[in-house]
């Protein structure tokens, strides 16, 4: 057994244990760690935004454009900067609507870029993988592919909103829910291992890096 001599390891170990104390019940130590976490993570975000966005994307281009008298370049950076500054109008109730402009820029951009890729990955790829091809009645996997097709179609039935779920629609959509439940069970069972690995990682930190019990 070899206790760690690094102050950093001790800090990390202390914080690790305070989080685990939450499993027993909420307590002042957890509360302390929680507030450290929230404060430090926001502080970290600020430093990251400062160094990764504010300086390279705003500060330097603005300065360079100004020094080089590159007015189009200056305007190119100034527009989004000014748009970003409009967020500050949230602090003035009368003019707070100005903050809608940068939000609109963002919404337009993301909605526009998401549509076509969504058609490709969410629709085309899925449809192509589902259509039966080269059906061979003597091969088991062909029959399973047929099962897959039935599963996809019946699950889609569950998402029919403008039809009453009665009769054939109701029956098919119930079949769809069966598929959904089996899928959920499988995903659940499959994830346990990855989650336990995380715990193993923490325990190894405590026993190895901190306490030095394990080699």
């Amino acid at each position: 057994m070899q206790l760690s001599t690094s102050i950093w390891v001790w800090i990390a170990a202390f914080l690790t244990l305070t989080i685990y104390s939450f499993l027993y019940k909420d307590n002042p130590l957890y509360r302390f760690a929680e507030h450290v976490f929230v404060g430090a993570s926001v502080g970290w975000s600020i430093a990251i935004v400062w160094h990764m966005t504010a300086i390279p994307y705003i500060g330097i281009p603005l300065r360079d454009a100004f020094v080089q008298r590159n007015w189009p370049g200056l305007i190119y950076v100034a527009i989004p900067t000014l748009l970003g500054c409009l967020y500050f109008f949230r602090f003035f109730p009368k003019q707070s609507w100005l903050a809608r402009w940068p939000i609109a820029l963002m919404m337009g951009y993301y909605c526009g870029i998401s549509i076509s890729p969504s058609i490709e990955t969410n629709i085309f790829t899925q449809v192509q993988g589902t259509i039966l091809t080269g059906f061979n009645p003597t091969s088991l996997s062909s029959w399973w592919a047929l099962l897959l097709l039935i599963g996809v179609v019946s699950t889609l039935f569950y998402f029919f909103f403008s039809l009453k779920h009665e009769g054939i629609v109701g029956k098919t959509s119930r079949l769809g829910i069966w598929f959904v439940m089996i899928a959920f069970g499988a995903s659940f069972g499959y994830t346990v291992m990855a989650r336990v690995s995380l715990l193993i990682g923490r325990i190894q930190f405590l026993l190895h890096d901190w306490l030095g019990i394990l080699k």
């Binding site: 989080i19 019940k25 929680e34 976490f37 929230v38 993570s41 926001v42 970290w44 975000s45």
Partner: peptide, 18 residues
């Protein structure tokens, strides 16, 4: 709260219990 996934969760869990 925070833009950090688990910092956010830690705080929301705290809210739930308090």
């Amino acid at each position: 709260i925070s833009e950090h996934q688990f910092a956010y969760v830690a705080a929301v869990n705290g809210i739930m219990l308090r």
